[in-house]
Design a binder for these strands. Structure first.
Lengths: 340, 340
DNA sequence: CTGTTAGCGCATTCAA
DNA sequence: TTGAATGCGCTAACAG
């Protein structure tokens, strides 16, 4: 049988309340008494039963998710996963609220973040827009004791506790190698469609992509990046125009808004054998993968990201450790054969 | 505030004990009383607090893992993950025991399984060897009320509750497409190294591989399968011999024992440009991927499989639902760029 | 500074 | 067939 608070109280010759004070590092315990209790804890190998503690405390975890208000399938999916998590709230003792902020708008994000410090959530998950002022508030909130995890897009250089998203440099490098290997001996130009160079995830994907291209596939030349703002309409326009270039042999779409990309490909490139790699598995990209418009999809599993963010935030709130390997968000690579 | 047993007792005008009897479908409640309670439960939207219930019951989950005694890195890794889970046991209320059985030996597996029915674990996770007699015991145990999940290798057609492993047909198909696309316009022969056609996962990978090869890459011919019994020494011998064939342009290793494969490749194929796809990320395959001996690795994450098996078994033991998407074991595809 | 006591939501005796 | 009382491991008033 595992030792309980009673056992350590008996071993240390003190009462339950004192043991509790030591366990929860509350004040009002003499140094010597504290030492006695700590010794007993160590010797009996006591580990606190978190479930029982939460029951006694009636603890719930008020969590806030901050997301950009973007009208693309990936963000819709992320939203859906958060709603799923809200449905599980009773069982998981969470109390989750989602807040939307204008996309690519550091000032708006900062405003919401500052408002949050008043309502005292026990954890914050946010899709970060990469800007100094955002980094500043985040650092301030972390200092004030709020657990913060970044979601999907990281905020490197800030004090955020954890990042629940894929390694985007690795994603870009992987895209480059797949494209290069699939193209084999072919030479030509590569079009790159991004959302915005303002978000770190897109910048990092591009960085990884260009470096592997330069190192290993010198016969493929990258054209100037098209910024589609993750908007299907803009993406369609940009890609349709770019496809006028007959030297293009491949496309890398590293952001969202792939509906527009796919439409442009079907209109302008039916007769060409382009190799296309895109990010994010959605209804649209899935269909395009199956009908061979797209050759491979790199994906981050929004459900895993949300669940991981919640686990990490709860653990941080309790001062507990996380299973690192479990919280690593993997880059999914989908060909038409291994679709879920 | 969520409704508790007290609330439904008050609403139904009965005592806690009666509510409990209804909740746990125990006998000794008049039909009309039962109905009253059930109505109250429905109307208040009561959901049981599993943590509190487990606390009151002092419940633990005795779980058994059955693994083949194979000396390859993948099985070592699986073992390590189970040991990690054992370390987490106190926090997760599990009590995990691992049993090794001779590999590819249905009779031995049946023996262990039969012995288990006496010690009453509340869940069994097993790497299945695919044989009718195994299917028979599994079905018997399931009928007797034991939750059973298959791990890594499934037992299709049996009554096992869940399979914690990858879709191996999809894995084989994916390997074929990667190999075919990487090879591009090249023609030639493909060597296939398997462990044993006695285990379902290997048979399924081969099946998926050959079908995509036949459908989409007719210029690549598959040579007769080499059965290395997941043993590095045997694998080395077989592959070294096979590489005498100068027409070979690619290799698909769908089992374990890749140490032997890699050694053979380095000895016999330094001067050739083979495209090689292997399964399972280990220290050896990782190094080979980095030094370009292997071009891609398909992997199943043993840690996820073990944690998933535990979650599912606990849920089944409690008659609870699982998050299906979370329990789907994904096929990892690693190029040298996205290694963890 | 330290101890007593009640109670979180549920299960389980033991009586009635 | 039903109910009252007790306890699981822990926290939190409230006394001393």
């Amino acid at each position: 049988m595992r030792p309980t608070v009673h056992d350590i109280a008996a071993a240390a010759g003190v009462s339950l309340a004192t043991v509790d004070r030591v366990l929860n590092q509350r004040p009002g315990v003499r140094h010597v008494t504290r030492e006695k209790v700590e010794t007993a804890i160590r010797e009996l190998g006591y580990v606190r039963d978190v479930a029982a503690a939460n029951l006694a405390k009636g603890r719930t975890y008020p969590l806030v998710f901050i997301l950009p208000a973007s009208d693309n399938s990936f963000m819709h999916g992320l939203n859906a996963e958060i709603r799923q998590a809200i449905l599980r709230s009773p069982a998981e003792r969470t109390d989750i609220r989602a807040i939307e902020v204008p996309a690519f708008d550091p000032a708006a994000l900062v405003g919401v973040l500052e408002g949050l410090s008043r309502e005292k959530p026990c954890g914050i998950a946010m899709v970060a827009t990469d800007a100094p002022e955002v980094r500043a508030v985040v650092d301030r909130l972390v200092h004030a004791g709020f657990p913060i995890v970044t979601l999907v897009s990281d905020l490197t250089g800030s004090l955020r506790h954890h990042y629940a998203g894929v390694d985007n440099i690795a994603a870009g490098r992987t895209a480059a190698r797949l494209l290069g290997r699939f193209l084999g001996p072919r030479k030509g130009k590569i079009a790159v469609l991004a959302g915005s160079m303002l978000v770190r995830d897109h910048r990092e994907r591009l960085e990884g992509f260009t470096s592997v291209m330069a190192e290993e596939f010198p016969d493929l030349a990258i054209l100037p990046v098209l910024e589609g703002r993750d908007d299907p309409e803009i993406a369609h326009m940009l890609v349709a125009k770019a496809l006028g270039n007959a030297d293009i042999v491949g496309v890398y779409s590293l952001g969202a808004g792939n509906r527009g990309l796919i439409r442009a490909l079907k209109e302008k490139a039916v007769d060409r054998t382009l190799t296309v790699i895109a990010h994010e598995l959605t209804a649209h990209t899935r269909a395009a993968l199956i009908d061979n418009t797209i050759d491979a999809i790199l994906n981050q599993n929004a459900g895993h990201e949300v669940r991981s963010a919640i686990r990490v935030l709860k653990a941080k709130a309790d001062g507990l450790a996380v299973i690192e390997a479990q919280e690593r968000i993997r880059l999914d690579i989908f060909l038409k054969d291994n679709l879920p």
